[in-house]
Amino acid sequence: MSSTFIQVIASGLLLGAVYALFSSGLTLIWGMMNVINFAHGDFVMLGMYVAFVVWTVMGGGPAAAVPIAALVLASLGIVCYFVLIRHITRGPMLAQILGTFGLALLLRYSAFWYFGTSFRTLPETLVGGTLPIGPIRIESSRLLAGVVALVVTVCLHLLLTRTTLGSRMLAVAEDADAAELMGIRPDRMQAIAWGLAAAATGIAGALIANFFYVAPSVGETLAIVAFVTVSLGGFGSVPGALAAGLLIGIVEQVSAYAIGAIYKDIVVYALFVLALWLRPVGLMGRA
């Protein structure tokens, strides 16, 4: 195996970890509330701008940007829940789709208005450049994002499966009426789910900003990958999103390298359709 091929695999794993990172928030909302959040990509975009603002205003790197982005986005998520989501979930499916889609456009065009259309980037030196490991080169900023992806996934998974809060949230997801009879307030649980999901998304954005460009339309580019990752991983399954993200990352990189960049989407989506045909609930979803 040539060293280039090892580099391709390494790049694929890191890319996949990033996909997993920005998909975990989406899968959480999807699994908890059965709401498809079309504004997800634009939440990532806002997380990226938080990192950009933290850098320009304070000169700070991810150590400052990540917690700030998590806080800002968590607040935004909770506000969105009470102002918009709570109302549209009572309506038909179409209202939910159009509601979150409207939210996406609102956020995107607010960003166009406030931040302008220019592409921004953060300096590579912020996270310490590139690590050469033998013939392989690993970008520190991607590695950091990959590691955080794992940590966030494990934390969210533990929170959902090992804590009372998690059990309550799952109970609401399972049957909101029954949960309410047990003394759990669905509204509060769902607001927390939105806050958590948005926080995870904000963290993702703040980390991705270190190696990606920042622009108001960046959410559009990223959102589609998030949707594919979540449906392949299984709706609502956080570990599923991780597995699916890694898989998509590797398949994408290997096919782009071996066959060609314009064919990678064909390979990825063909495998995606095949996987869902064989297992409609996704890799780790429950029927």
């Binding site: 280039t4 391709v8 790049s11 890319l15 990223l222 960049a261 314009i262 990678k264």
Partner: peptide, 15 residues
């Protein structure tokens, strides 16, 4: 090397 302009990643092409 053709590629899609809204790609999320170009590492393979550079490799």
């Amino acid at each position: 090397i053709p590629y899609s302009a809204n790609a999320t990643d170009v590492q393979s092409q550079v490799l």
